[in-house]
Every structure is written in C-alpha cells, then in structure tokens.
C-alpha cells in the first residue's frame, strides 16, 4: 500500500535485488546519523520555528514549508542522548515516513554513501540496547583519515511517527 515507506526502510533484506542502499549521512549533536536516501524528500535551510507548548521535549515545534505545517524533531533528544546545544541547527531534512512529512533538525549534511549489507550491523543482531528508532549501525570510510571508519546511527524513517 505504501511503496515509499517500504523502500525507505533499511531493515534487513529490504533491498535484496542490488544489496546496496543509498544513505544520507548527517551530523547532529555529537553523532553521525544515516537516513535512507529514498525517504529524504528535501534538505532545507531552517525556516522560522514555532514551538509547540506541552509537546514532548524532542519535538522542537512546527515549521511551514510552502504552506504545509511540518513537525520538527530533535534527533539526539529523541534518542535520549544528552547534548549541550551549542549552535543552532544548520539544516532541516524532510523525511517521508510513509504517512506524513517529518522535519529532522541536523547540524550539517555530510554526504551520501552507498552501503552494502555487510557495512551494516543490524540492531537485532547487536547485544547493546538500542532505541526503537534505530535500525542499526553502519560503517563508512572516515571523513578525516583514509584508513579509519566512522559509525553512522541508521534511523528507521517509519519509526518517526506518533507521539512517543
């Protein structure tokens, strides 16, 4: 019924034909996160934010994108990672979670990686307790040195739903 949501997930065997998935890597707080590129509708310079009183703390508020009202999420807060908020976020990703568009505030966009299934350690196969929003952890070549690898926290777009 919802082809976009289906394709957008990074769950195991989601893209079994080719194996590889395009992942958009972004920086937020002190971590790098990855979103399936197919779920990213747009990357915006942050529009004016309107806070929504009484909403859960990881909801920053709402923004208007061409007349459409969109909820903006703070990633580290959503994952319960305490971060000293220093600078204002630099970009907003519009993510299609299959039901509506959700805005995700990030510091900056890193780049798009093509990830093979071998590059991803799925949450289900890991011992560590991971948030319900996380599909797993992906390894990508480091930005700083050629030999090292960086870790991407891979987010499941479908999980960005409802008031959790």
């Amino acid at each position: 019924m919802r082809p976009t949501a289906q394709k957008a997930t990074l769950a195991p065997n989601a893209d079994s034909d080719t194996g590889a998935t395009a992942v958009l890597a972004v920086w937020a707080g002190n971590e790098a996160y990855g979103f399936p590129l197919s779920a990213v509708r747009e990357i915006l310079v942050p529009p004016p934010l309107t806070e929504v009183p009484r909403a859960a703390r990881h909801f920053l508020g709402v923004i208007s994108v061409r007349g459409q009202i969109i909820t903006l999420i703070d990633l580290p807060k959503m994952l319960n990672l305490e971060v000293e908020q220093t600078a204002p976020y630099g970009r907003v990703l519009l993510i299609d979670n299959g039901e509506e568009l959700i805005g995700v505030a990030v510091d900056r966009v890193i780049q798009v990686y093509r990830m093979e299934p071998d590059d991803i350690e799925y949450a289900s196969a890991m011992s560590a307790e991971l948030s319900e929003y996380v599909v797993g952890v992906g390894r990508v070549p480091s930005e700083s040195s050629a030999d090292a690898q960086d870790m991407l926290i891979l987010i499941d777009p479908v999980s960005l739903l409802g008031d959790r």
Partner: peptide, 11 residues
C-alpha cells in the same frame, strides 16, 4: 491546518 500525527495528542 492539522498539526500532524506526531503532535495530535498535544492538548
């Protein structure tokens, strides 16, 4: 306009 699903439970 609706506040969307995520914020629908905010009174």
């Amino acid at each position: 306009k609706s506040l969307g699903k995520s914020l629908s439970s905010v009174h």
